[in-house]
Nucleic acid binder design. Structure first.
Length: 593
RNA sequence: CGGGGAGUGGCUCAGCCUGGUAGAGCACCUGGUUCGGGACCAGGGGGUCGGAGGUUCGAAUCCUCUCUCCCCGACCA
């Protein structure tokens, strides 16, 4: 039992002005955290207590499939060299030097260290599979920390790594994580979804993110309400409705039309009296190719083309091209590679490179364009467009593929599904994905298979953002007065509020009840402060504790009030029944207690 | 990194434009009254106005530089 009168719970009546999102405001107001610097936070008593409970759940569930390690956050440069990530991580990694001038870094993740252990220790297929995990502080020099604990430079991550003999084994490890993650997030009281995700720069195949819908999130999720399809928009696809082609004009061949000052899609469409879908949009990039060692190798010009009403999806484009980085061309580069300014760029007359990021200009075309005809496109000449532009006949490309972002309302990509996609913001709380051989291969980890042949184990990598669980929980369960956590992750199960501590009867009754609850296994916070009742009620409702028992006037009839924070309702309970009433509410699943 | 905004007591902010030596509410301390929805009265403590330089008789206020934080776009748990 903890007595509030002796705790440090610095609640704030008003939120500091630099807090924007709900979770940030409430974490500060409730005295869970305090900021130390951009993306760096102190966790105070209540915050740490809640995070500890989250960690305990993660640990308990992870122990059913894996073994807990604890690896150093401080890593020598050498460990990060073979995978190419010492350079590959770029400015996102914190780096430092020791007194001898040797390079070190603060680890952002631990694939290399885990693989290093595997490389040195694993000899035989009989030792596989292995699942190793840790709960550790991670450091990332985020370009832009924001939104309280949502995007920070130091945070706690549960990261695990699986080593399997073959792809089928990896499938099992992946699936085990999927199941365990679902249990963890469910026990933490989160309403979450799992979505297909891009496997990104880490390399690998299947990739799945666990997301919590909230406007504070930074990811966009496309989902189908009919069939349940869900994917990060970085990855999501859709079926496009057929486009009614324009009738050709004149001889049907590309015709130069003066369009002075009409650089914007909307202006061009209005001028030609066409829909934006019949205008070709060009977005030009410089794309970086990296070598085997992760070092930047060369920049290549890329012209991407898509429908005027579509947006480029840079993640998809990078994936299609095999590019490591993408940045928009500047005006001089547009002039140099395309000989025209933005607004008048088009595919006609370009000479596409033979393969992506080879010598010359890489022309990438969205596949919504490859069968189209009689479109309008920039003429690669200031103040001119072309009409009657037909794919294949009038222009060619290096590569065609899906390089656009889906839009809300488009048809679900699933075969036979009639649903329309809905797009919503979400925050990522966990990520599981199949790494493949990237690390085991580059670092030379091998085992002998049953035939005595050397084989490279296949890896998976799985992360959970601990603070993000807390943040997401607050985002999805708050009101004007504060927030509420599920009992399993709340710093306390119940707060016993004595309305007036100067009344010896009330004080004694509250003390006694709190002690009984404590004895019965509840985490109890006794509000024995010499404050007015209103102050105590406000505080209790602010700080995330799911239940409050008010010890007040009704004590004369041996009764108290039980207030349920999530519903903001209270019931009168006889003193003798408090424990029995609270038991199923706090411990709904006996095995989870 | 590019674009926008803000730094004045613990918190929210006023004062700045139009220089004259810092203020309110909340919080805090003491005493008293009060005690089921962020009380009241009286008294009190606390700020080199982010930092440096400059202009001026005089700078929170004007000028230059700088640091930090927040928000919007490229990264990720």
């Amino acid at each position: 039992m903890h007595r509030w009168s002796r705790l440090f719970v610095p609640t704030l009546r008003e939120a500091p002005s630099d807090a924007e999102v709900a979770s940030h405001k409430f974490l500060l107001r409730s005295g869970y955290i305090r900021q130390l610097g951009a993306g760096i936070y102190n966790y105070l008593f209540l915050g740490q207590r809640s995070l500890n409970k989250i960690i305990a759940i993660i640990r308990e569930e992870m122990d059913t499939i894996g073994q807990e390690f604890f690896l150093p956050a401080l890593n020598p440069r050498e460990v990060w060299e073979p995978s190419g990530r010492w350079t590959g991580m770029g400015d996102n990694m914190f780096r430092l030097q020791d007194r001898k001038g040797a390079d070190l870094c603060l680890a952002m993740t631990h694939e290399e260290i885990m693989t290093e252990i595997a490389r040195r220790e694993l000899r035989s297929y009989k030792q596989l599979p292995q699942i190793w995990y840790q709960i550790q502080t991670k450091f990332r020099d985020e370009p832009r920390p924001k939104s309280g604990l949502l995007r920070v430079r130091q945070f706690t991550m549960k990261d695990s790594y699986s080593f399997d003999l073959d792809a089928a084994g990896l499938d099992r490890s992946f699936d085990q994580h999927d199941q365990v993650y679902r249990r963890i997030f469910t026990r933490c009281g989160l309403r979450f979804v799992s979505v297909d995700a891009d496997s990104g720069a880490m390399g690998g195949s299947q990739s799945q993110e666990f997301m919590v819908y909230t406007d504070a999130g930074e990811d966009l999720i496309a989902s189908c309400p009919v069939c349940g399809y869900a994917a990060n928009v970085e990855k999501a696809t859709s079926r496009l409705d057929p486009v009614v082609e324009m009738e050709p004009t004149g001889d049907g061949m590309p015709e130069l039309v003066s369009t002075p000052g009409l650089g914007a899609i909307a202006d061009v469409a209005r001028f030609f009296q066409i829909l934006p879908a019949s205008d070709i949009k060009c977005v030009a990039y410089m794309a970086l190719r990296r070598g085997q060692n992760g070092a930047p190798e060369s920049w290549h010009p890329v012209a991407s083309f898509l429908r005027g009403d579509h947006q480029v999806n840079e993640t998809k484009l990078m994936g299609l091209l095999g590019a490591a980085e993408l940045r928009p061309m500047v005006a001089e580069e547009l002039e140099l590679f395309l000989h025209a300014p933005a607004g008048f760029l088009g595919p006609v007359g370009l000479e596409p490179a033979a393969t992506p990021l080879a010598q010359g200009l890489t022309v990438a075309v969205d596949h919504s364009l490859t069968e189209r005809k009689n479109m309008v496109a920039g003429a690669n000449k200031l103040d001119y467009h072309l009409r009657n532009v037909t794919a294949g006949r009038d222009f060619r490309w290096t590569i065609a593929g899906d390089i656009r972002s889906v839009l809300e309302g488009e048809s679900c990509p699933c075969a036979g599904c009639s649903g329309r996609l809905v797009v919503g913001k979400a925050v990522e709380i966990g990520h599981i994905f199949k790494l493949g051989y990237k690390y085991t291969q580059s670092m030379g980890a091998t085992v002998l298979d049953p035939n005595g042949k050397e084989v490279t184990p296949i890896m998976g990598s799985y992360g959970i953002g601990v603070e993000r669980i807390l943040t997401a929980a607050i985002e999805q369960s708050h009101d004007d007065a504060g927030f509420w956590l599920t009992p399993a992750i709340a710093p306390f199960h119940v707060v016993v509020t004595i309305t007036n501590t100067t009344d010896p009867t009330l004080l004694a009754a509250g003390e006694s009840l709190a002690a009984q609850l404590d004895q019965a296994g509840f985490d109890v916070l006794l509000d024995d402060r010499d404050e007015r009742a209103g102050v105590k009620f406000k505080d209790a409702e602010l700080i995330g504790i799911p239940f409050r028992i008010t010890v007040g006037k009704k004590i004369a009839e041996q009764q108290v009030e039980l207030f349920t924070r999530s519903t903001a309702t209270s019931i009168v309970v006889p003193l003798a029944d408090v424990i029995a009433t609270l038991q199923p509410l706090v411990f709904p699943n006996p095995s989870a207690a």
